[in-house]
Nucleic acid binder design. Structure first.
Lengths: 179, 179
DNA sequence: GATTGCATGTAAGGGGTTACATGATTTT
DNA sequence: AAAATCATGTAACCCCTTACATGCAATC
């Protein structure tokens, strides 16, 4: 469903091919979705069958011909309706959080290793987001990147706290065993 | 896949029925997943068929008999292997972010309404998280709630910035039209 | 007498990923 | 000669949600 509106929304700025859409998703929207061709093309076909878009084939010299999709009036109406409705709750599957919750079964050392690995991942993500932030062309793109940066930073801060808890508990335990 | 390890992880603390698992998911793990019976029972059946758990039926007086699942050695190995592997990347679908990205097509008033609605939602979520935080029994539960609170706060702060941008742009526009 | 809690499940469908398949052209 | 870019798609599968179906016991 999300990808239906994603496509309609991109087509609001002008006709595009499926390939063009994929490119834009990959470059500017990775924070929102990782949609692949296996999602994008079938969704376009569905939109076409439902007259939310229409399509014309454009021949090109030296390149395969492409199918350019254009949003219809009906499609525009559907998109604007969706846009004004309050957003559905985010669906986020956070494997790392689950691991942390279930980590009673892990030694303190393994736990710290898990946390450290996550922090490194976050740092890598943060750096690439900072780069991305410099290349943002529109205000909207900047908002999305800023969101990702804010969440990234919040998780990093939280992780530092978790790390402190773990270390404190470790010290308590060793104090116990010394007594 | 997530729910496979979730179940194995909960069974590491002792045998449980599917119903027990559902209760624990609902009370302590709502931030991580909202798994319903439609996920939990079939996953248990799969785990059973693969000898990661075994099951015995326990008759009860005055209540329906229940099927108590216990993790096997093989299941424990599988779980601990998973726990030590670095976590898979979070899978996300953030509808609100998508709307904001595509909101070029919205009037400033509608945009501000969208943002305001989101801020209210966040405030409601924050309050219920603060309550939940008070009721946490284990360190792990507290970590999870703290994570949710941190992300919630980060998004609220970011939204305030976005709101400022929108208002500034609005003022720029009206200054233009005065000239 | 109605609702909530305990306890189990299935069926249909939605939304998505991964891998595969094809083929020309341009760049390295 | 190999790899990347342009361009389209399908098939199989996975995970999960929603809605439905059942039935007894305890509480309000």
């Amino acid at each position: 469903m999300l990808h239906r509106y994603l496509i309609l929304g991109l087509l609001m700025d002008g006709p595009m091919s499926g390939y063009d859409i994929k490119k834009q998703v990959h470059s500017a929207l990775g924070i929102i979705t990782n949609a692949s061709y296996g999602t994008l093309y079938p969704t376009l076909h569905k939109l076409l069958a439902q007259d939310a878009v229409h399509m014309r084939e454009v021949a090109q010299t030296g390149r395969p011909s492409k199918k350019v999709y254009e949003i219809t009036d009906q499609g525009q109406r559907e998109f604007l309706d969706w846009l004004k409705r309050p957003a559905a709750a985010d669906q986020v599957r956070r494997e790392f959080l689950l691991k942390l919750y279930l980590a009673r079964n892990l030694s303190v050392e393994d736990l710290l290793a898990l946390v450290a690995a996550r922090r490194e991942e976050l740092e890598v993500a943060r750096k690439s987001l900072v780069n991305e932030r410099d290349g943002t062309a529109t205000l909207q793109e900047a908002w999305v990147v800023d969101y990702a940066l804010a969440v990234c930073q919040a998780e990093a801060d939280w992780l530092r706290q978790v790390e402190t808890h773990i270390v404190q508990r470790k010290m308590l335990k060793s104090a116990d065993s010394v007594d």
